[in-house]
Measured scan of single mutants.
Amino acid sequence: MRKLSDELLIESYFKATEMNLNRDFIELIENEIKRRSLGHIISV
């Protein structure tokens, strides 16, 4: 996760939620978004 750019991480989050991927996977992405202080972009 740390090698993904912020932009790609956010894009991955939206794609994963759109495709209804595994909730655990989405939570991993959400946690990384929060760690990077980007939660305001997706309202996490």
Rank of each mutant, 00 (worst) to 15 (best):
1 M>F: 14
1 M>V: 15
1 M>A: 04
1 M>S: 02
1 M>D: 02
1 M>K: 02
2 R>S: 15
2 R>T: 14
2 R>C: 09
2 R>K: 12
2 R>E: 14
3 K>C: 10
3 K>L: 12
3 K>T: 14
4 L>A: 04
4 L>K: 03
4 L>P: 01
4 L>T: 03
5 S>T: 11
5 S>H: 03
5 S>Y: 03
5 S>E: 04
5 S>Q: 03
5 S>L: 04
5 S>K: 04
6 D>P: 03
7 E>P: 06
7 E>Y: 11
7 E>W: 13
8 L>H: 10
8 L>P: 01
8 L>N: 09
8 L>M: 12
8 L>C: 13
9 L>Q: 01
9 L>G: 01
10 I>Q: 02
10 I>H: 02
10 I>R: 03
10 I>V: 07
11 E>W: 15
11 E>A: 15
11 E>L: 15
11 E>Y: 15
11 E>G: 06
11 E>V: 11
11 E>I: 13
12 S>P: 00
12 S>W: 15
12 S>I: 15
12 S>G: 06
12 S>M: 15
13 Y>I: 02
13 Y>L: 04
13 Y>M: 02
13 Y>S: 00
14 F>Q: 06
14 F>S: 04
14 F>I: 11
14 F>A: 05
14 F>D: 03
14 F>L: 10
15 K>T: 08
15 K>E: 06
15 K>R: 15
16 A>W: 08
16 A>Y: 07
16 A>D: 01
16 A>C: 06
17 T>V: 15
17 T>Y: 13
17 T>C: 10
17 T>N: 09
17 T>G: 06
17 T>D: 04
18 E>K: 10
18 E>M: 11
19 M>K: 06
19 M>A: 09
19 M>C: 09
19 M>I: 05
19 M>L: 13
19 M>R: 05
20 N>T: 05
20 N>L: 08
20 N>R: 09
21 L>F: 11
21 L>D: 06
21 L>P: 03
21 L>E: 07
21 L>I: 08
22 N>W: 08
22 N>M: 08
22 N>H: 11
22 N>R: 11
22 N>A: 14
22 N>Q: 10
22 N>F: 07
22 N>G: 12
23 R>G: 07
23 R>S: 09
23 R>Q: 09
24 D>E: 13
24 D>L: 10
24 D>Q: 11
24 D>I: 11
24 D>F: 09
25 F>M: 11
25 F>N: 04
25 F>L: 13
25 F>W: 14
26 I>W: 04
26 I>Q: 03
27 E>N: 10
27 E>Y: 09
27 E>C: 09
27 E>L: 13
27 E>R: 12
27 E>F: 10
28 L>P: 04
28 L>Y: 04
28 L>K: 06
28 L>V: 10
28 L>Q: 09
28 L>R: 05
28 L>S: 06
28 L>G: 04
29 I>S: 00
29 I>G: 00
29 I>C: 04
29 I>W: 03
29 I>Q: 01
29 I>H: 03
29 I>L: 13
29 I>D: 00
30 E>A: 12
30 E>C: 11
30 E>M: 15
30 E>W: 15
30 E>G: 06
31 N>P: 01
31 N>A: 14
31 N>E: 12
31 N>L: 14
31 N>T: 12
31 N>G: 08
31 N>W: 10
31 N>S: 11
31 N>C: 08
31 N>R: 12
32 E>V: 02
32 E>Y: 02
32 E>Q: 01
32 E>M: 02
32 E>F: 03
33 I>N: 00
33 I>H: 00
33 I>R: 00
33 I>V: 05
33 I>Y: 01
34 K>S: 06
34 K>A: 08
34 K>N: 10
34 K>G: 04
34 K>P: 00
35 R>P: 00
35 R>C: 03
35 R>F: 07
35 R>M: 05
35 R>I: 05
36 R>N: 00
36 R>P: 00
36 R>K: 00
36 R>L: 02
36 R>S: 00
37 S>V: 07
37 S>H: 13
38 L>Y: 03
38 L>I: 05
38 L>T: 01
38 L>R: 02
38 L>S: 01
39 G>E: 11
40 H>K: 06
40 H>T: 06
40 H>A: 08
41 I>L: 15
41 I>D: 03
41 I>S: 06
41 I>H: 10
41 I>M: 14
41 I>P: 04
41 I>Y: 11
42 I>S: 04
42 I>N: 04
42 I>H: 04
42 I>Q: 03
42 I>T: 05
42 I>L: 10
43 S>H: 13
43 S>M: 11
43 S>P: 11
43 S>T: 14
44 V>L: 14
44 V>P: 11
44 V>C: 08
44 V>I: 12
44 V>F: 13
